[in-house]
């Protein structure tokens, strides 16, 4: 079991999100989100669509900067680091995007090898063998020369994961990895996340609203609601929550929300 001491001792958190506020125009997306993420854990962030889960994830890797608050990764203040230095820090991260975000104009091999070409001086042979190994880890082989447009949704997600782990990152961020996939393919992706976690011993942060996936892969689950983390706990704690908002979400109950959406 992963040590979750860091959750209560802020100084031990690998990633610390401290009172982060973010606004787009007049919409306040994050309103003081605060959480510590421990080394080696898989933290699943759940919450309704549009509640700011992906926005929070993008703050961790510095794709977005907070209006207020700080994001700290291993004593580096991501939120105050300039773009040039961030490029070096990002080598320690891998990110899997919601729709995979594979580069359309490049083959699968070029996509997976992209980070290797940029950050290493490896020979072509070594790069090819890493690409093959990572693709095998995500259950794909013989697709190196295919273009992203020739792949199915599930295959694209897998290539996205292979690209994210190519440089053996310390932290992997998954943005809704199972959204848009059938139940079987969703479970395949869950298994892959667990496999990557075990084989590379990474810290993972997964944003999702798929509760089945959250229970399966999460060491801890955090619920984001109206821009704040309202509860953090182990999957068992979340399942037995007394918080009515968390309870409503994990059981998927509409209650008065149907009136809201019809109004």
């Amino acid at each position: 079991m992963t040590d979750v001491v860091c959750a209560t001792k802020p100084s031990e958190g690998l990633i610390r999100i401290e009172q982060v506020w973010k606004r787009f125009g007049s919409t306040h997306v994050l309103r003081g989100a605060h959480i510590n993420i421990c080394r080696g854990e898989t933290l699943v962030i759940i919450g309704e669509s549009g509640c700011g889960k992906s926005v929070l994830l993008k703050h961790i890797i510095g794709l977005l900067r907070p209006d207020k608050g700080r994001v700290i990764f291993d004593h580096i203040e991501i939120s105050a680091t300039d773009e040039t230095d961030l490029a070096t820090v990002r080598r320690r991260f891998g990110m899997v995007f919601q729709l995979a975000a594979l580069f359309d104009s490049m083959s699968v091999r070029e996509n997976v090898a992209f980070g290797l070409y940029r950050h290493t001086n490896y020979s072509e042979d070594r790069i090819s063998s890493i690409v093959t190994e990572k693709l095998r880890l995500v259950g794909l082989s013989g697709v190196e020369s295919k273009m992203p447009s020739e792949l199915s949704g599930g295959m694209r997600k897998r290539v996205g994961i292979a690209r994210a782990i190519a440089l053996d990152p310390e932290v992997i961020l998954y943005d809704e990895p199972t959204t848009g996939l059938d139940p079987i393919m969703s479970d395949v992706i869950n298994e892959l996340i667990l496999r990557v976690q075990r084989s590379q011993n990474t810290t993972s942060i997964v944003v999702t609203h798929d509760m089945k996936s959250a229970y399966k892969i999460g060491t801890r689950i955090a619920m984001l609601h109206k821009g704040k983390i309202i509860q953090v706990g182990t999957p068992e704690e979340i399942q037995n929550t007394t918080n009515p908002i968390v309870g409503q979400f994990i059981r998927g109950e509409a209650r008065e929300r149907i009136e809201e959406s019809l109004a």
């Binding site: 993008k58 890797i61 490029a87 990002r90 990110m95 995007f97 580069f103």
Partner: peptide, 18 residues
Amino acid sequence: GTMKVTEQIDALRTLGAD
């Protein structure tokens, strides 16, 4: 524009490319 809306530009940044 398509690369921006499909997050490919963000992906470039996460892979260390400006």
